[in-house]
């Protein structure tokens, strides 16, 4: 429940954050003496202090929720839609089409994500959305494989045969019988994939493979690192890192819960059958 609560909190920040923050993410903060507050330690007015450019850290963190959520959603959507399509089609249709799709999936397994991202950025230029799309375009592979093996099992079950022999069309069977039965597993992998995508995006941000002007949490860590104040200005370097970790952990734990619910349902079905 804590995990769900935390994720809802991040989502809420992403939506209303920019409306409630006291300062803009690139608004310089001036002290009482009229000087810019560079790297100021936390005070009551600025609970998390300021950065070396004189920005309010708390405000930047609140702003940073939105890029994180966008990363999760866009890459999650890509992982889920590409992975499900390829998994279900290659599992259910099988044959040559299935084989080609699976070899394509294997091919993506041979892509080392971070060097690949560096190359793509070199070609298309760095950008926030480019980095997310790179992640989404690669990370669907795990979901595709798992779903395929699930579909292979499900399509042998007599209720699929029953639908076939009563004249149901292939798309009908896929949408009506196959998808609902693999969906729980898909959602589990969606949760895990989303968390993983957020970590990788932060990593890419840290490496500078993304737009430095989008105030994501990863960029904040990078800025802190580049300023050389990683260890002295802890108020600045630690919070974004923690937030990334907790968000991802929450997503993973949520996935685990889903997983145990799925297996429990299956167990209770077996118990009924036995």
């Amino acid at each position: 429940m804590i995990y769900l609560g935390f994720i809802s909190f991040v989502l809420l920040l992403a939506v209303i954050g920019p409306l409630i923050v006291p300062y803009g993410y690139n608004e310089r903060i001036y002290g009482p003496d009229g000087e810019i507050l560079f790297s100021a330690a936390p005070t009551l007015a600025h609970p998390l202090g300021t950065t070396d450019s004189g920005y309010d850290v708390l405000s930047r963190i609140v702003y940073g929720a939105r890029p994180t959520v966008v990363t999760g959603m866009v890459s999650g959507f890509m992982i889920f839609s590409i992975g499900m399509t390829i998994g279900v089609v290659s599992g259910y249709v099988g044959g040559r089409v299935g084989n080609i799709l699976m070899r394509f999936t294997d091919l993506t397994y041979s892509i080392p994500l971070i060097p690949f991202a560096l190359v793509v950025v070199a070609i298309f230029g760095s950008g926030f959305y480019v980095s997310i799309v790179i992640i989404g375009a690669v990370l669907w592979r795990g979901l595709a494989r798992v779903i395929r093996s699930q579909v292979l099992q499900i399509k042998e079950r007599p209720f699929i045969l029953a639908a076939k022999t009563s004249g149901a069309s292939t798309p009908y069977i896929i949408f009506k019988h196959v998808l609902p039965n693999v969906a729980p597993m898909g959602i589990l992998f969606l949760a895990l994939g989303t968390g993983y995508a957020i970590v990788i995006q932060a990593g890419l941000a840290f490496l500078g493979v993304t737009d430095p002007f989008v105030p994501s949490w990863g960029i904040m860590v990078r800025n802190a690192y580049e300023s050389g104040m990683m260890s002295s200005a802890l108020w600045w370097s630690l919070p974004p890192g923690f937030l990334i970790s907790i968000t991802v952990l929450s997503l993973f734990m949520l996935g685990r819960r889903l997983e145990s619910q799925i297996t429990q349902n299956e167990e209770s079905m077996i118990a009924e059958a036995g």
Binding site: R157, P158, F159, A162, S166, A168, K176, N181
Partner: peptide
């Protein structure tokens, strides 16, 4: 021509209610 399967535990889609299972046939035809 209709078929009845051996394994009653797997012959019905676990996600569909009795009504939906029967309705499906009527929709298809």
């Amino acid at each position: 021509v209709q078929m009845i399967f051996q394994d009653p535990f797997n012959a019905l889609d676990p996600k569909l209610s009795v009504r939906e299972t029967l309705e499906e046939q009527l929709k298809i035809h």
